[in-house]
Design a protein around this nucleic acid. Structure first.
Length: 272
DNA sequence: AATCGTTCCTGATAGC
DNA sequence: TGCTATCAGGAACGAT
């Protein structure tokens, strides 16, 4: 599933691939992916618009347009946004297609139909984006800021980290990976971590996200980058999807358990 | 304010 | 072999 490193990889790919491209036409095989404006307004406002910049906030991808509006995309579980050549085959789950003059196209595909695409004027004013916690790779994300967001919470720290108002961009893969790197059990109450533990967690979140971006993300399932290719950080996972296998650090057997309805992975040897 | 249950969806897999 | 039931999960939403 696309989390911060995957969305950031797509952003970087598309910032280059779409630069100054003008949308010639739009096709909507599945308008259900749209949020906000209806299909007619969507097509009308985008036809003729030119791409101008690609940003990211948490797991939201924000594609700017010269009209001043932005396309706000959330890939959720299985969304893929890729720039295709004219002779590439269209994905089976194509939901929205933007065609360019040279025959290439930007395709939003989504097997499970959870992903959303919205055209809006001020993305930061959308409630979902406005409520997001700090960006973990910016200077505003400090150990103190993380500690303040976790304070008073009795929920398991894994569940707290999945809450996008605590930190923006973490999902099921990187919460488990960061907690392993920090040596903290996912079940620990979020508000009861020591200062040293919060500092380790802060450092681990940053380091695992940075490493994953360098590896162009984790292709566990359907994730593909902006060019339609896989990432390789899944080969560096220390706990995620490794239940029953040995911890690379201490040799203990990795455990998987459902916590708050989410698959959760940890090493009983390294994490306490 | 925090937290919990429900909902959306479909491919993969387990069980018979 | 082929059918059916179950599972996976991000996050909005309503309820507590």
């Amino acid at each position: 599933m696309p989390e911060l490193p995957e969305v950031e990889t797509v952003r970087r790919d598309l910032a280059v691939a779409l630069r100054k491209r003008r949308i010639e036409s739009v096709e909507l095989p599945f308008p259900g992916s749209l949020r906000g404006a209806g299909r007619n307004g969507f097509v009308r406002q985008l036809t003729g618009a030119r791409f101008a910049g690609a940003r990211r906030r948490g797991k939201f991808l924000i594609l700017g347009l010269d009209s001043g509006q932005s396309l706000v995309v959330h890939l959720k579980m299985t969304g893929v946004l890729q720039h295709q050549k004219a002779d590439d085959s269209l994905p089976k789950a194509a939901r929205i297609i933007f065609y360019f003059r040279d025959g290439t196209r930007l395709v939003f595909s989504d097997q499970r139909k959870f992903g959303t695409v919205r055209l809006c004027g001020r993305p930061e004013q959308l409630p979902d984006i406005g409520a997001l916690g700090p960006e973990p790779l910016t200077r505003s994300f400090t150990p103190l800021a993380l500690g303040a967001r976790l304070a008073g919470r009795r929920a398991p720290v894994k569940a707290a980290l999945l809450d996008q108002t605590v930190v923006a961009g973490l999902g099921n893969i990187y919460t488990s990976e960061a907690l392993h790197r920090a040596g903290i059990l996912p079940q620990r109450p979020a508000g009861k971590l020591s200062i040293a533990e919060v500092e380790r967690l802060h450092r681990s979140i940053r380091s695992v996200l940075e490493a994953a971006i360098k590896a162009r993300g984790s292709s566990v399932n359907t994730y593909r980058d902006g060019r339609g290719e896989r990432g390789w950080f899944q080969t560096a996972h220390r706990v995620y999807d490794r239940q029953g296998r040995k911890c690379k650090r201490c040799g203990c057997v990795i455990v998987r358990e459902t916590l708050r309805g989410r698959g959760t992975y940890w090493c009983p040897g390294c994490q306490r």
